[in-house]
């Protein structure tokens, strides 16, 4: 049901862009909305980070996933339990670039064997790790590849990236490997929300919608490139116009391209207000981005507020009888 609602949303977006651009709304879909969406993305993303950052980190609470730094002859797990800023950078880099925590994922299974009773077994499970890693990296490559519509002249490294991506040289224009992988990865990520009973139970509309929206973006992009082709030169002209604040739309960009563009705009505008902000949020996560040097360096809590203590003097009075009974001679200055 939640998936269906999300699908309807995405299809609706497709229809809006298709009909709208055909009905003479090229300027809206080619200029106004891209600017608006990009602005919302920039401001929204920054605002969200600032919003989080306005709350302090009162305590240093890293999750330690390895041996601490203690005695010199005990080997510290530098990346799982960093003790210095540099080691934290290492931990964060592994987390952000390679999804290290997810790499360690396991799957628990209850097995029932005769004469033994139920038994929990745990196995490594790299499936989610590999699929999400593929999705994120291919999406990044695709994003970078699109720079060719905005950079003039197209730099050599960008051509090289495209050529590497089109390494197999099948089809005309050459098929990008990332295009195939990103659809596969998104498809699997979507599929597991249906087939994995646990994931199904936790999924919300706001989980299906971004997945389907991304699939919409990717599929419409593929259509525009391989099937219902558009005028690439016109697209690039539009890119240049947008960059130089020239508010005109070249002719010859078909509705299919506006659909793609509109879905991208939706994604951009939706990004800051959705779970997609994990992209920025992961950098602020206090269980990952802090060194476990708690006993070495004092962490300052800006609101460390006073609390009512039970003072020694009061305690001494309240338990005077017991203290005398114990024969303590409690001294103090």
């Amino acid at each position: 049901m939640k998936a269906l609602v999300s699908l309807v949303f995405v299809l609706l977006l497709v229809a809006i862009a298709w009909i709208g651009s055909e009905a003479g709304g090229e300027v809206v879909f080619g200029v106004v909305l891209p600017y608006a969406a990009f602005l919302v993305f920039l401001v929204g993303f920054t605002w969200k980070i600032v919003k989080w950052a306005r709350a302090p980190v009162p305590f240093r609470i890293p999750t330690t996933s390895g041996q601490q730094k203690s005695l010199p002859w005990i080997r510290q797990a530098r990346f799982d339990n960093p003790a210095t800023g540099l080691q934290v950078v290492g931990r964060m880099a592994l987390e952000v670039l390679l999804f290290r925590s997810l790499f360690q994922n396991t799957k628990a299974e209850m097995r029932t064997e005769k004469g033994r009773g139920p038994r929990l077994v745990f196995g490594g499970d790299k499936s989610l790790w590999i699929v999400s890693l593929i999705f994120h990296w291919t999406f990044l490559v695709i994003l970078i590849r699109h720079l060719r519509f905005f950079l003039d002249p197209v730099p050599g490294w960008l051509l090289t990236l495209g050529n590497l991506d089109a390494f197999f040289q099948v089809s005309v224009p050459a098929l990008y490997i990332t295009d195939v992988l990103v659809v596969l990865a998104l498809g699997i990520l979507l599929l597991r929300r249906f087939t994995n009973s646990q994931v199904r139970a936790i999924s919300l509309v706001s989980d299906y919608f971004p997945l389907l929206l991304l699939l919409g973006v990717v599929i419409s992009g593929i259509v525009v490139r391989y099937f219902a082709k558009t005028d690439v030169v016109g697209v690039k002209e539009l890119g240049a116009n947008l960059l130089t604040l020239r508010l005109s739309v070249p002719a010859g960009i078909g509705a299919q391209a506006y659909v793609h563009l509109f879905l991208v705009c939706t994604l951009l505008a939706y990004f800051p207000f959705s779970k997609l902000m994990h992209a920025g949020g992961v950098f602020l996560s206090p269980t990952r981005n802090l060194a476990n040097n708690n006993r070495m360096v004092r962490h300052i809590n800006p609101w460390n507020r006073p609390v009512a203590y039970h003072r020694f003097e009061d305690w001494e009075k309240e338990f005077a009888k017991e203290i005398e009974d114990a024969g303590y001679e409690l001294e103090r200055d």
Binding site: L147, F150, L151, D152, P153, A240, L243, T244
Partner: peptide, 16 residues
């Protein structure tokens, strides 16, 4: 905003 900086450095994106 990389494309903006790039364009500025290249003297603005050219026309087709």
């Amino acid at each position: 905003l990389f494309p903006v900086w790039y364009g500025a450095a290249q003297g603005g994106p050219g026309r087709p």
